[in-house]
Simulated scan of single mutants.
Amino acid sequence: MQSFNYRHLYYFWVAAREGGMARAADRLGVAVQTVSTQIRELEQNLGTALFKPAGRALALTDAGQIAAARADQIFQLGEALPDLLRDAASQPALRLVVGITDELPKLVVHRLMHNVLAEPRLRLLCRQGSIDDLLADLALHRLDLVLTDRAVAPNPNLRIYSHPLGASEIAWYASAAHAAQAQRDFPQSLAKVPVLLPAPQAAVRMPLDLWFEREAVQPRIVGEFADSALLKTFGANGMGVFPAAEIVHDELVARYQVRQIGRCRGVSERFYAITAEKRVAHPLVQKMLVS
């Protein structure tokens, strides 16, 4: 079968909707012979008749009914295209460039941004890195904001501002390989089972170390991770028990198939948005800060 011509299909579609070739010719402003020629060439390319005699008029064949239904979809979409393009031009994409520190839990990032993700015009760009590198990009206005686990100290050379986004208590999680043993005599059990911890530069690490001291526990540390997602991945695969923000408990259990073995009383992880201006102009950043 040859590739058919969409002009031929369009003439057929108009004839099918108007109920005949004469009416189609009037609608299109062409001769009846032109319409019939276009449709005949379409039938030849498709290898089947699309119209059949019905008294003095014409009716669609079974193949014609199928073709007409498909043509409806094609040309109705085509007729709507100019309006769609006008709407797109009048409502340009909202570009949001976010820097995310390595230590910030990625499930928490999604939670912090949930109220802007429904924006239909959103074009989101995420960059991950160290806090120093991200703040440098923020100062140069390469980022709209930075999401991190700590407030940034005032710096006379950088006009940056810390906005608290909330906090979450920390709990301990384990895969099936360690859950039962870790739950027995918790938290003293953390001296016996393998333990994974955030790297020393993470804001939550010092509160965790102080918690171990208060509980008189010498943890059996087998791994430290700067990237929170790696920590959870290794923990979920049985390398050791690990701490995580309880705010994402449901997502954590569903995604990583782990169990909560106990809470880390008195230890919380805090979350901040860092911006380069005190009065934020970006509408999506404003929306995040007031959520």
Score class of each variant (00 low, 15 high):
Arg111Leu: 14
Pro187Asn: 02
Val248Tyr: 09
Leu58Asp: 01
Leu190Cys: 10
Gln257Leu: 11
Pro53Ile: 06
Glu169Ala: 01
Ala15Lys: 01
Leu196Cys: 08
Val195Asp: 06
Ala68Pro: 00
Gln128Leu: 01
Ala69Gln: 10
Leu122Gln: 04
Gln181Ile: 06
Pro53Glu: 02
Val222His: 12
Met21Tyr: 13
Ile131Ala: 08
Arg27Asp: 02
Gln181Lys: 15
Val97Ala: 14
Leu94Ala: 12
Ala203Tyr: 11
Val222Lys: 07
Glu224Ile: 08
His163Met: 05
Pro120Leu: 11
Val108Phe: 06
Glu224Val: 13
Thr148Ala: 14
Ala202Gln: 04
Asp26Leu: 11
Pro194Thr: 13
Ala22Val: 13
Ser90Ala: 15
Val98Gly: 00
Ile39Tyr: 00
Leu145Glu: 00
Ala118Phe: 11
Cys264Ile: 13
Ser268His: 07
Leu42Ser: 05
Leu94His: 09
Glu169Met: 10
Leu124Arg: 12
Gly99Glu: 07
Gly235Thr: 05
Lys52Glu: 14
Gln201Pro: 07
Met239Cys: 02
Gly29Thr: 04
Leu50Pro: 01
Arg123Phe: 05
Ala69Cys: 01
Phe4Leu: 14
Leu77Ser: 07
Lys106Asp: 09
Leu140Ile: 08
Pro200Met: 08
Ala24Val: 07
Leu117Cys: 13
Ala226Leu: 09
Arg111Ile: 09
Tyr11Phe: 12
Leu284Gln: 00
Leu190Trp: 04
Asn237Leu: 13
Ala236Pro: 02
Leu197Ser: 03
Ile170His: 01
Pro164Asp: 14
Asn115Asp: 08
Glu18Phe: 05
Ala71Ser: 04
Val241His: 05
Arg184Ala: 12
Gly223Arg: 02
Val98Ser: 00
Val116Leu: 08
Glu119Ser: 06
Gly99His: 02
Glu79Gly: 04
Arg40Pro: 00
Gln38His: 09
Val222Leu: 10
Ile39Leu: 05
Ala57Gly: 10
Ala71Gln: 02
Ile100Gly: 02
Pro156Asn: 11
Pro53Thr: 06
Gly64Ile: 01
Leu112Thr: 00
Leu124Asn: 07
Ala180Lys: 15
Glu79Cys: 05
Ala176Ile: 05
Ala80Tyr: 03
Asp62Cys: 09
Gln33Glu: 03
Tyr256Asn: 15
Ala191Tyr: 04
Gln65Phe: 11
Val222Ile: 08
Ile39Gln: 00
Gly240Glu: 03
Gly55Lys: 10
Arg259Ser: 13
Gln128Trp: 01
Tyr10Trp: 11
Thr61Gln: 09
Ala199Glu: 07
Ile160Ala: 02
Glu41Tyr: 08
Thr34Val: 11
Gln2Cys: 03
Leu135Met: 13
Ser90Thr: 15
Tyr173Gly: 01
Ser162Asn: 13
Phe234Ala: 02
Gln65His: 12
Leu50Val: 07
Phe212Met: 01
His110Pro: 03
Val253Gly: 03
Ala254Gln: 12
Ser268Lys: 14
His114Pro: 00
Lys278Leu: 14
Arg270Glu: 12
Phe4Ile: 13
Ala153Pro: 03
Arg121Glu: 14
Thr48Asn: 02
Leu42Phe: 05
Arg56His: 12
Val267Cys: 02
Leu196Ile: 04
His249Thr: 07
Leu107Asp: 06
Gly29Val: 02
Arg220Gln: 14
Ile274Lys: 00
Leu117Gln: 11
Gly64Phe: 01
Leu210Arg: 14
Val146Trp: 04
Thr148Gln: 08
Asn45Gln: 15
Asn45Arg: 15
Leu84Gly: 05
His110Leu: 14
Lys106Phe: 07
